[in-house]
């Protein structure tokens, strides 16, 4: 359902994505791992149109993104962003709205849903991420783990066909990581298409169906998690995983 074709992206003289080609199927949970600076965030942000790129193409369903940014892709961007959700490392909740307000924002103002209906759905979503009791709280009053779960509910409220998550747990206190991973595990079980950048190898191995290793702007490994993580082909992957295991 998502098809990336020789995607290239540069920052000045530095090439950040160097001909990335990959296809994702519906219902698949993909874990994206690799060393810091490898281009994982950039790839995710390109998929959501938050970043423009310089070569290649991204096809999501019937929408195609081409190099040239918002000016060229206006229509495709509007459609893609409604169909692909994004969860950020630092959650980025709207601080001037309650948990519930954050979740209904998209449905009401983008989809034009009636407030009552959006609220009913938002309450169900907050229930699903275990935060019914916090619906009236403002982001400033919630822990990081709670905020990230609200952010997931906010993305789900748009009923996305796929969810992109960029290190959803790495800004959290260690004891808060579990509650977010539990939510993601549940979503995976329900068959949601997800692409998760993560350093949680247990999560990658146990929950995802497929693991990609991005290094130096290229995909150097692509396969079932057990294979990639336990038996990496590439020297660089081994080095990276060795580092990860030690901490």
């Amino acid at each position: 359902m998502i098809n990336v074709e020789s995607l290239t992206k540069t920052y000045g003289p530095r090439t950040v994505l160097n001909g990335v080609s990959v296809a994702f199927e519906k219902g698949q949970v993909v874990s994206l791992i690799g060393p810091s600076g490898g281009g994982k965030s950039t790839l995710l942000r390109c998929l959501n149109g938050l970043e423009e790129f310089h070569g290649g193409a991204i096809t999501i369903g019937r929408d195609v993104l081409k190099p040239g940014g918002a000016a060229v892709n206006k229509k495709a961007l509007a459609s893609i962003r409604q169909r692909v959700g994004m969860v950020f490392q630092t959650w980025n909740l709207f601080p001037h709205r309650t948990a519930l307000g954050n979740v209904i924002e998209g449905p009401v103002h983008v989809k034009g849903l009636a407030v009552a209906e959006a609220t009913a759905r938002a309450e169900a979503l907050l229930e699903r991420v275990g935060l019914s009791h916090r619906k009236a709280a403002y982001p400033g009053e919630m822990s990081g783990g709670e905020q990230q779960r609200v952010a997931i509910a906010r993305a789900l409220a748009m009923e996305p066909e796929a969810l992109l998550l960029d290190e959803p747990t790495s800004a959290l206190d260690p004891e808060r990581v579990g509650e977010v991973l539990d939510v993601l595990t549940g979503l995976a079980k329900d068959g949601l298409t997800m692409m998760v950048v993560t350093h949680e190898m247990r999560f990658a191995r146990e929950v995802s169906h497929r693991t990609l290793v991005l290094h130096g702007g290229q995909i150097i490994e692509d396969g079932p998690p057990a294979e990639v993580i336990d038996n990496p082909k590439h020297e660089r992957t081994r080095a990276f995983l060795g580092l990860t295991r030690r901490d």
Binding site: L50, R81, F88, N92, H96, E105, G106, V110
Partner: peptide, 30 residues
């Protein structure tokens, strides 16, 4: 207002004017 706010709004499918009106300006005004 942090850039992440605009990005979060855009990723919900908001247009830039809508993102400004609903997310950025209320915070900037405060």
């Amino acid at each position: 207002v942090p850039k992440g706010q605009t990005e979060a709004a855009l990723s919900l499918g908001m247009s830039l004017p809508l993102a400004l009106r609903r997310v950025v300006l209320p915070q900037a005004f405060r």
